[in-house]
Design a protein around this nucleic acid. Structure first.
Length: 518
RNA sequence: GGUCUCGUGGUGAAGUCUGGAGUUCACGCCGCCCUGUCAAGGCGGAGGUCGCGGGUUCGAAUCCCGUCGAGACCGCCA
């Protein structure tokens, strides 16, 4: 090409960091200049282009299945998902607040009552909880609800959706139907409700073996083990100590272990506290070979299984046992309806509108811990990428569930009265599912952090280094928003009617006007 | 709320454990030169309160305390 003339359309100063993709730049810096970061051919810029493709593919699937895309409000009432709400003051009703939705759960159920038999939406959801590598305070779900459906209909839809995306975007054929596993099996075999089945290392249950043990540590509700292939030959004393630290940093008591010698007999660690039949038994139960190590956990069942599950994944990572390039989709079904709370009550594992299995409806109130839900999570490589349930549409069954959850009729009425009222008018049987769109994109793009698939993400302290949000507000804004106003009924926070006369407004706390941030 | 890691020219790192002159490497930037380029090449140059505050010390990037910011995890969270 020979340039004969040119015009300068725009000029640029020296860039604050290289965007050539050859230098690793700190994330804080890249977020501060996100618009430059996104220019890079690789990284988050490419992720956003992929994201658009994925979303389009999903829309085509939903359209093919005759779903309607319907938007629900962002300024709304608190939704019953259990997380902390983001709140928005309402100028026209000083002292009253909107909540940003944690999900469109209630609205999509209302849409079912409205006869919108098949609904979907790419919905932004807001939860005011602490961050993780895969958690942001605002995130996107592909939210789906349909009427007159069974669990299998929804699973088939999910399989069509995900396999189509993988085929169209990654050119990967995912076999359907996906394997299914019950929640109970997942906990028992993998110590997790979202098992990573790309590798084995299934947990061994040694509770029966150690039922009459003299070893005090193992005299507990549950004793389990994880095999560590090659752990006896490869791990030094220092490395075993590091596992103790690992466990303690997660609030555990440590990791008991034995090393299987060349003769196939466990030695070292806690071996000297165990009888010979116990040593033989644990080798058989874990299928340990000479040179392997075995890690143990003991204690209350649930807690121990979860600790073992975390240990299993950490061991697999450490031993390099997790194969790359595999896509292991899995449905985890039949989760419990309720989970015991610390204060002796019950809390919903999914949410209060989740339907129990037919067989469990009768015993719901007497044995809440036994009841299983018609609920399903879709798991990919050990990470939960979606979940849903069939819902309750009968008033009496819903009241039973509220009862177990310790919600009085008044409380239920004040929180979800509008939904219960809608359910008076012939709600169709319905159910749905929501897919964590950011997490799915994380998998497809192979990124470590959810921030890499979001155009303008926030840092772990909830700030945006680009805009400097959040910022303090001025005294004038504070007054106008009415945020210091206290409605008369604030204590119950339940009235659906107009608020009564507010008590005298307390003087607004001294706030500085917006301070500049960079 | 808790545990841990990190903060050094514009960018990325080494130096910190074991205190001794702002030392080093790569990229970028500026100037000159060369050039059939495509992550160009040669020569020269500028640029840093070692996040911030305090302490210990003859002396602190380095040790101690505090604080701010970033990241990971636990708690929390469908």
């Amino acid at each position: 090409m020979l340039v004969t003339s040119y015009d300068v359309l725009s000029t640029s100063e020296a860039l604050p960091f290289p965007i050539d993709g050859h230098t690793d730049v700190g994330e804080e810096r890249r977020l501060r200049y996100r618009y430059l970061d996104l220019r890079s051919a690789a990284g988050p810029g490419a992720a956003l282009r992929t994201r658009s493709k994925v979303t389009n593919a999903a829309r085509r699937v939903m359209e093919r299945h005759d779903f309607l895309e319907i938007e629900t409000p962002y300024l709304t009432r608190s939704t019953p998902e259990g997380a902390r709400d983001f709140l928005v003051p309402v100028r026209l009703q000083p002292g009253s607040w909107y909540a940003l939705p944690q999900s469109p759960q209630l609205f999509k159920q209302l849409l079912m009552v409205a006869g919108m038999e098949r609904y979907y939406q790419f919905a932004r959801c807001f939860r005011d909880e602490d961050f993780r590598a895969d958690r942001q305070p605002e995130f996107t779900q592909l939210d789906v609800e349909l009427s007159f459906c069974e669990q299998d209909d929804i699973l088939a839809l999910g399989e069509d959706l995900l396999s189509t995306i993988w085929r169209e975007v990654l050119d990967v054929e995912i076999p359907t139907p996906f394997p299914r596993m019950t929640y109970d099996d997942a906990m028992r075999r993998y110590g997790s409700d979202k098992p990573d089945v790309r590798f084995g290392l299934e947990l061994a249950d040694l509770t029966a073996l150690f039922a009459k043990t003299d070893f005090k540590v193992f005299q507990s509700e549950h004793v389990g083990a994880v095999l560590v292939p090659g752990g006896a030959t490869d791990y030094t004393r220092k490395q075993f100590d590091a596992w103790q630290e690992w466990s303690k940093s997660r609030g555990g008591k440590g990791v008991a272990y034995v090393q299987v010698g060349a003769d196939g007999i466990p030695a070292g660690g806690i071996a000297k506290f165990l009888r010979e039949d116990e040593l033989r038994g644990l080798v058989a139960a874990t299928d340990a070979k000479p040179g392997d190590a075995v890690f143990f956990q003991s204690g209350p069942k649930r807690q121990t299984l979860e600790a073992l599950g975390a240990l299993r994944v950490a061991v697999a990572k450490d031993r390099g046992l997790i194969p790359e390039g595999r896509w292991e989709f899995l449905w985890v079904t039949d989760a419990p309806m309720f989970e015991a709370t610390d204060d002796g009550g019950w809390t919903a594992v999914h949410h209060p509108f989740t339907r129990p299995r037919k067989a469990d409806e009768a015993g719901l109130v007497d044995a809440p811990g036994e009841a299983l839900a018609i609920a399903y999570d879709v798991v990919l490589n050990g990470s939960e990428i979606g979940g849903g349930s069939l819902r309750i549409h009968e008033r009496d069954l819903q009241e039973k569930v509220f009862g177990v959850l310790g919600l009085s009729a008044e409380e239920a009425q004040s929180k979800f009265g509008f939904l219960l009222e809608a359910f008076k008018y012939g709600p169709p049987p319905h159910g749905g599912i929501a897919f964590g769109w950011d997490r799915i994109l994380q998998h497809i793009t192979g990124t470590e952090s959810i921030r890499d698939v979001i155009a303008f993400p926030k840092t772990a302290s909830g700030g945006d280094p680009l805009t400097g949000a959040p910022t303090p507000i001025t005294t004038a804004q504070r007054r106008e928003a009415g945020i210091d106003k206290q409605p008369a009924s604030a204590s119950s926070a339940s009235s659906t009617g107009p608020t009564g006369a507010a008590p005298p407004n307390r003087p607004a706390a001294e706030t500085r006007p917006d301070t500049e941030r960079n």
